[in-house]
Amino acid sequence: MSTQFAEPAGQDDGQVCHIEYLAEVSGLSTDEIEDLVSIGLIAPADDAVRPPAFGLCCVLTVKTARRLRDDFQLDRHGVALALTLVQQIRELRAELKALQARLG
């Protein structure tokens, strides 16, 4: 499978990738990635672009999803729950770091 990149439509100059690339680098199937999209854990960079293109930040999410699935033998619902919790932890850590920086 070849790496497929595209330029995002109507967004900044950052690169995006197609679902096949996400599947290639993560080890997930395109159906599993579509599940992540349907539950809102990743989203295409622009809903109007077909085929959908995803920001490269989604690479980390799909790789994490595959590790969670494989390491803990989780089904799609377990992966979704675990990913949601991982994302919340990352956001809370970032908020804590910003607060600590403001306090000195």
Rank of each mutant, 00 (worst) to 15 (best):
M1D: 11
S2D: 15
Q4T: 13
Q4R: 14
F5G: 00
A6T: 09
A6C: 07
G10H: 06
G10P: 06
D13I: 03
D13L: 05
G14N: 15
G14Q: 15
G14L: 14
V16Q: 01
I19Q: 07
Y21N: 05
Y21Q: 06
L22W: 06
L22H: 03
A23I: 09
A23G: 04
E24L: 12
V25Q: 03
S26E: 05
G27V: 01
D31Y: 05
D31L: 09
E32C: 08
E32R: 09
I33M: 02
I33R: 01
E34C: 08
V37F: 03
I39P: 03
I39S: 11
G40A: 09
G40M: 07
G40C: 06
A43Y: 05
D46R: 12
D46K: 12
D46L: 06
A48L: 09
A48E: 10
A48Y: 06
R50T: 10
P52Q: 07
F54A: 04
G55Y: 11
G55Q: 10
L56M: 14
C57K: 14
C57D: 15
C57M: 11
C58R: 03
C58P: 00
V59L: 09
L60G: 06
T61S: 09
V62S: 02
V62L: 04
V62Q: 02
V62A: 05
K63C: 13
K63M: 12
T64M: 09
T64F: 00
A65S: 03
R67N: 11
L68E: 06
L68S: 05
D71K: 07
Q73V: 14
D75P: 00
D75G: 06
R76Y: 14
R76V: 15
A80I: 03
L81Y: 07
L81M: 11
L81H: 10
A82E: 04
A82G: 01
L85G: 13
L85E: 15
V86T: 09
Q88D: 12
I89A: 10
R90A: 08
R90H: 08
E91I: 09
L92C: 10
L92G: 01
R93V: 02
A94R: 15
E95S: 10
E95A: 10
L96W: 11
K97L: 14
A98T: 08
L99H: 11
A101C: 07
A101V: 06
R102M: 05
R102Q: 07
L103Y: 10
L103E: 06
